[in-house]
């Protein structure tokens, strides 16, 4: 299934858990709320007339409005962003893709993996998912797969380690 222009054809992408969307939505709600509160401070101060003239009214209203619009836009993108995350295990390497507008497809040969991290945050733990990160000798590799179900994360970690060992190459 070739979903996106730079996706390889004939590859079955494994998609991440739908729970990851919920985690992202919660994170997005919290983040948006914080930003909105911060951006509303001048407006509140202005309305309470503690600040008398400095931020013009349009600016005081405009700031939270802009934050709101950006947050809404990000929120609208979230489902597509999560849906765009995918990974595919091949015989020799692991493919990871992500991004809606700015797409990225990454291939990491198993033999190049130096170590594999599995990280779980509090929110992720509540939903039973985890984030897997691969490290190669190149710090720029930056390969991570978020939103894996816990058992899939464990399986993948073991699988990757085993394959990495079997195909180990130095540098």
């Amino acid at each position: 299934m070739r979903r996106e222009p730079i996706d390889p054809s004939g590859l079955e992408w494994s998609r991440v858990s739908p729970k990851y969307l919920r985690v992202r939505v919660i994170g997005w709600l919290i983040g948006s709320l914080v930003w909105l509160v911060l951006a509303s401070i001048p407006l509140v101060l202005r309305l309470l007339e503690i600040w008398e003239s400095f931020p013009p009214v349009w600016l005081a209203w405009g700031l939270p409005a802009v934050v709101l619009v950006l947050s809404a836009w990000r929120g609208l993108l979230l489902p597509r962003q999560v849906a765009s995350i995918g990974y595919a295990e091949r015989d020799d390497d692991l493919l990871v893709r992500q991004g809606v507008f700015f797409q990225r497809t990454l291939v990491v040969p198993y033999g190049r993996m130096q170590y594999v991290d599995v990280a779980v945050g509090p929110l992720e733990r509540a939903y039973g998912i985890c984030t897997l990160k691969l490290h190669t000798a190149a710090p720029a590799t930056n390969a991570f797969i978020p939103g894996l179900p816990a058992e899939e994360g464990t399986r993948l970690r073991e699988q990757l380690s085993a394959r990495g060992e079997a195909r180990l190459a130095g540098l």
Binding site: P5, F101, F102, Q103, T105, L106, R112, A137, T141
Partner: peptide
């Protein structure tokens, strides 16, 4: 080669 990535913006 350590890893490769393909990038495409809008």
């Amino acid at each position: 080669t350590q890893s490769l990535s393909l990038h495409q913006g809008p």
